[in-house]
């Protein structure tokens, strides 16, 4: 049920944005280098991708920390971070597959989505998408760890959703952002979640640009990997388990 609602909500957003951008593009042929054909594709795929690691992964992890349910997970011989990543992957496979079918159907019927720029772009898109998935899951893991200190999850959830959807390029492509925000978004790891895979998909990045994008993405992936491990240790050492 939750899965279906998540997908439904994603598509409501897509339709709203579609209508907005349709109006914007009726005046002009291209905005910040994006044609209407590309923009349609971007909107639909961006939301599909950002919905992959959804609300539930974070709320589940924060919930276990807040209530002390985490006790159960910690008395098992499992690495905590791996468990969380696996849970994220599990939920994403289900939601992802359903979304994929919907995107293909709606995309071809209603949105007239563009195919990938080239077979190479398609392959690299898949690689970047996977890396982006891990980046998002790690970011959510890190944010959820804050719950150990705040013991409040609602604020963290909203903040996390908002920041990720802006800085990942889900709401608008990075190229259309105003100066300072654009610089920030281009440096931070969150662009790797949506923007990087889609730039590759649409053929917006070629040659060295493309290599640079992937290098940045994988560089951040490595940093987040080590940082999240360190942060978990820190959290584990510093704080208490809730409940008697």
């Amino acid at each position: 049920m939750t899965t279906l609602f998540n997908i439904l909500i994603t598509f409501i957003w897509v339709f709203i944005l579609y209508a907005l951008w349709d109006a914007a593009f009726s005046e002009t042929g291209a905005i910040a280098g994006y044609s209407w054909d590309e923009m349609r594709t971007y909107i639909l795929l961006a939301y599909g991708i950002n919905a992959l690691v959804g609300w539930r992964v974070a709320s589940q992890m924060m919930g276990t920390i807040r209530t002390g349910e985490i006790t159960r997970e910690l008395t098992r011989p499992l690495n905590y971070r791996s468990t969380q990543l696996a849970a994220a992957a599990g939920m994403s496979v289900v939601e992802g597959l359903i979304s994929l079918v919907l995107i293909l159907v709606l995309g071809t019927l209603l949105f007239d989505v563009q195919p990938p720029d080239s077979p190479v772009a398609a392959a690299l898109f898949a690689v970047a998408l996977l890396a982006g998935f891990v980046i998002k899951a790690l970011c959510i893991f890190l944010i959820s760890l804050l719950c150990f200190w705040t013991l409040n999850s609602v604020g963290l959830m909203w903040a996390q959703q908002a920041v990720i959807s802006v800085l990942s390029g889900t709401l608008i492509p990075l190229a259309m952002m105003p100066g300072a925000l654009r610089v920030v978004a281009e440096v931070l790891p969150l662009r790797g979640i949506v923007s990087t895979p889609l730039q590759i998909y649409l053929g917006k990045a070629q040659g060295w640009d493309l290599a640079g994008l992937l290098a940045l993405q994988f560089g951040w992936l490595a940093v987040l990997w080590f940082f999240s491990d360190w942060a978990w240790r820190k959290a584990f050492n510093a704080v208490e388990i809730q409940g008697g």
């Binding site: 006790t71 910690l74 008395t75 584990f236 050492n237 208490e240 388990i241």
Partner: peptide, 9 residues
């Protein structure tokens, strides 16, 4: 018990 099971430091 939490200290003995290793879930508290």
């Amino acid at each position: 018990v939490k200290l003995l099971t290793g879930i508290l430091v």
